[in-house]
Amino acid sequence: MKKALVILFAAASVVTLAAGQTAVPKAKLPVLTTSAGQSNDVNALNIVLEEADIKYDYCDVPTPEMVAAGVGLGNKQSAEGFHVESTTDLAKFPKGTPFKACLVAIGASLKGMGASGLTIDTEEARVKKLVDYCKKNKIFLVAVHVGGEAGRGPAGSDNERMIDAVAPLADFIVVTKDSNKDGRFSKIAEKGKIGFQQVDYALGLVDIVKKMFN
């Protein structure tokens, strides 16, 4: 089994050559992970970081104030519809160290938003504020979409609104092949001259984040 896994990781890290792919840029720690649209894809993102052995802070619905509080997210505690997790190595980055990078998992889930008491409008407004904050404070913003076709939808749908709120403003976009079947992400990257990578499977991200943060 172990052997199979090694082969799999190797295979997954062989990036499909799609139009407009660029090299993986370097980013610095500490990193914050979060969601735009409250789908489960942020869990996938966290798992990817764990597999890559990169420590992170996570909040599903962070406010700019929480991001400004840096590592530890102002000691906020998880509550119903609000999750916080801080695994960042405090020896290297003590509490309050400003974040240098932010990974946003894009994917709208009606259920996820409902659970957090959000609607698509409030979520869009919240995400826009967060993206603005990152841009102003030079936090390296990475847009991630690993939801595949299930995480997309017709034009104007919740998912597409989340993509529009994050991807065009990101510093780097990384998506799975299924998520980019219609070339939506490559076009956004090309138009905005944004770094872009496409991977076969979500697991392929492990290699990319390793390159990014090491």
């Binding site: 009606l110 698509i120 017709p154 104007g156 749908s157 919740d158 609104r161």
Partner: peptide, 8 residues
């Protein structure tokens, strides 16, 4: 309706 952004 839900998929086109109306409130279910």
């Amino acid at each position: 309706f839900d998929s086109i952004g109306l409130h279910a």
